[in-house]
């Protein structure tokens, strides 16, 4: 009898560890995506509704670089791609991520130049609608490129796991957490730099910043480049198994990623990096733990109830703190 009890306890703690790791990993993806949102919002006051399409496009770049032998439209082969039936080593894979992020950043610059720059000074919602247009325009290319095949991301460790006692810890989850921590650290360091200060000044008052000699256009460029690169990184991280796309770019799952991150950035505050770090983990913990430990009440709570947990948390927090936990309250003047 005592043995059985011990066994139950052991398996309970195993479940707990696995759930915790899953929540932290999911939170890490939310954080990478959320940082992309926040940087663009802070630098340019644009809520980037195109984030879903952009992150999927980033994952597509990655897939093209690592999994395809040839480069579309160009006659020569991709020197980075591993041979048939081989997977890339970890250093090569990381290098490809870096190249992908550079490509995504360039893509961000193009979008910024074509669609955002002409709108400087226009109302917030006009800018948001522009990004919606960008989303609608880019998404068909993603669909077209993924439509007939899922696209492998060539993750070197595939779906392997480490054992931690009885618990299985997928390597991808650990990798996602590390990626998010590095991304968070880089963004925080960036914020403390001279350029980060300029960015904050622009966010505070564009005209005053310009009068102080800050190159506002440059700030816009950097914000979009960095924001899109981070969205791409989130798209790649979310593609690793056993995240839902299972190691590939998924037409079914990737396109809704950004909408799941909205509660995170609202919870933390639209313009707060620390808020995203906190909000990402908080929301993911709530979502995953509710899913795991309330599952026996599934028929009462409704199918897929854990999907709306983030929104419920968000609404509760907003009623108490209308600008999120770390957001800057708007000063209301007459």
């Amino acid at each position: 009898m005592e043995d059985l009890l011990l066994l139950a306890q052991a398996s309970a703690s195993t479940t707990f560890i696995q759930t915790l790791i899953k929540a932290l990993a999911l939170g890490s993806v939310y954080i990478m995506m959320g940082l992309g949102f926040v940087i663009i919002f802070k630098g340019t006051q644009v809520l980037n509704f195109a984030a879903s399409a952009l992150s999927m496009a980033g994952a597509m770049f990655m897939s093209i670089l690592i999994a395809d032998g040839g480069i579309p439209f160009l006659p020569f082969d991709n020197p980075l791609a591993p041979g048939d039936g081989e997977t890339a080593g970890i250093p090569l894979w990381l290098l490809t991520i870096a190249i992908t992020m550079v490509l995504a950043a360039l893509f961000g610059l193009v979008i910024e130049r074509l669609a955002i720059r002409p709108m400087i000074g226009q109302p917030l919602f006009a800018m948001a609608v522009i990004t919606l247009g960008v989303e609608i325009a880019i998404r068909p290319f993603n669909i077209d490129a993924t439509a007939l095949e899922g696209r492998s991301l060539g993750v070197p460790w595939g779906a392997e796991s480490w054992s931690l006692g009885d618990a299985l810890v997928p390597k991808s989850y650990v990798a996602a957490i590390i990626m998010a921590l590095i991304a968070g650290a880089i963004v925080i360091v960036f914020y403390r730099s001279r350029f980060g200060v300029a960015m904050r000044a622009v966010a505070f008052d564009q005209e005053a910043a310009m009068a102080q000699g800050i190159n506002v256009a440059r700030v816009f460029q950097i914000a979009w480049a960095l924001g899109v690169a981070l969205a791409a990184l989130a798209g790649i991280a979310y593609g690793m198994a056993p995240f839902p796309p299972g190691g590939s770019v998924s037409q079914e799952i990737h396109p809704v990623l950004a909408f799941r991150v909205l509660p995170v950035i609202v919870l933390g505050g639209l313009d707060s990096v620390l808020g995203v770090l906190f909000g990402g983990f908080a929301i993911a913990l709530a979502e995953v733990f509710a899913g795991q430990y309330l599952s026996q009440y599934g028929s009462t709570l409704g199918p897929g109830y854990s999907t709306i947990v983030p929104y419920v948390v968000m609404l509760i927090v907003l009623v108490v703190r209308p600008f999120g936990l770390f957001g800057t309250p708007e000063i209301r003047r007459v």
């Binding site: 809520l47 917030l124 919602f125 948001a128 909408f259 909205l262 509660p263 950035i265 609202v266 639209l270 709306i308 929104y311 419920v312 968000m314 609404l315 907003l318 209308p322 600008f323 999120g324 957001g327 708007e330």
Partner: peptide
């Protein structure tokens, strides 16, 4: 208010 309201209503 503002964008916070917009996103909250997505909820």
């Amino acid at each position: 208010r503002g964008l916070y309201l917009a996103i909250a209503t997505i909820g």
